[in-house]
Structures are given as structure tokens and as C-alpha cells.
Simulated scan of single mutants.
Amino acid sequence: MPPGIRLMQKVSSTRTFAKVAPRFIPAMDRAVHRLTRGKVLLSAKMLPGVILTARGARSGLPRRTPLACMPQESTGGWVLIGSNFGRQGHPAWTANLLANPDADINWRGADIPVRARLLEGEERAAVWKEALAFWPPYAAYQSRIEREIRLFRLERRA
């Protein structure tokens, strides 16, 4: 594991990070992604990331959200973790996917149509274990909130 990753895991587990990060990380990611025409996603230097474009649950308008993801090499898909940095309330993008599961992601500069599926039961439990091994701060996020963090599997659409 690169030395900066352990430090980032420690920092990202704090309540201060949860208060500050949601204000600047997504905005910075969107700006850099736009300026580089999809070639660079700064947060992906620490964790793999995608830009999710999903239709708003109420508005129906496209909403672009930079997100960390857990690539699933065996299936060619991705898992999105609705941690919201351990803050109360599910992130808006999760409601968008529940209402409109057909979405698009930009993965490493390529636009890919996907269908999202909320994971539940034993499947969710197994993927949650993978998520904790992938990024241990998710455990700290879950411990601070009463809601169950939503996990979505993204699979390619034709």
C-alpha cells in the first residue's frame, strides 16, 4: 500500500473530514474532470473513481456526481458505496439511482451506460465485507450513523 494511502484513510475517518470534504472534493473533481475532458479525476489518485450521471429522482434532469467506486474485476462492473462521508442522510445520488436505475458513468475517460441495483441481504453483506477491506474508513462512517449505508452494483447496459 502506498504510504499516502494509510494517512488518507486515517484523515478520512475523522468527523472533521466528513464536514469539510463534501464541500470541496466533488466540486474539485468535477472541475478537473471537465478541464481535462474526462482524462483526470483527482480523487481517483487515492481510490478508483467514476463520474456518475443519473437522472434526478424528482427533476428528471441529469445530475453529475464524482464518486469513489469499487471495481469488480470478475464481473466487469462497479460497486458504489453511499457513505456520504459518514454523515446523516443518504446521499442524493442514491435516491436518483433508486428512482432511475439506468445511468451512465465515465470510467477512465470512457462513457459507459450502466444499470444500478441496490444490494440487499446476503449479497450486500458479502460486498460490505469487500468494501471494508477495500477502504477501511467505511467502518468509521457506518459507526457514526444509524442508517445502513446503501451499496449499488453497476452493470453495463447494451
Rank of each mutant, 00 (worst) to 15 (best):
P2Y: 05
P3H: 07
P3E: 02
G4N: 10
R6S: 11
L7D: 03
L7W: 13
Q9R: 10
Q9C: 01
Q9N: 05
V11H: 00
V11A: 09
S13V: 02
T14D: 06
R15P: 00
R15T: 10
R15H: 12
A18H: 08
A21M: 08
A21S: 13
A21P: 06
R23N: 11
M28L: 15
D29C: 14
H33G: 00
T36N: 00
T36M: 01
T36K: 04
K39F: 04
L41A: 12
L42G: 00
S43A: 05
M46V: 13
I51K: 05
I51M: 15
T53P: 02
R55Q: 11
A57N: 09
P62K: 03
R63P: 05
R64D: 14
T65D: 07
C69H: 10
P71W: 02
P71N: 07
Q72L: 15
T75C: 05
T75R: 07
G77D: 07
W78P: 01
L80H: 13
G82R: 09
S83K: 07
N84K: 14
G89Y: 10
G89R: 06
H90N: 13
H90F: 01
H90A: 12
P91D: 06
A95W: 04
A95M: 09
L98K: 14
N100P: 02
D102M: 06
D104V: 03
D104Q: 14
I105K: 10
N106G: 01
R108G: 09
G109Y: 11
D111G: 08
D111P: 00
V114Q: 07
A116F: 12
L118N: 01
L118D: 09
L118R: 15
L119C: 10
E120V: 13
G121N: 11
E122W: 02
E122R: 13
E123N: 08
E123L: 11
R124P: 10
V127D: 10
E130T: 07
P136R: 10
A140F: 05
Y141I: 04
Q142W: 13
Q142A: 11
Q142T: 02
E148N: 12
E148R: 13
I149T: 15
I149H: 12
R150S: 11
R150A: 15
L151D: 10
L151Y: 10
R153D: 06
L154T: 07
L154R: 03
E155N: 10
R156W: 04
R156Y: 02
R157E: 08
A158K: 11
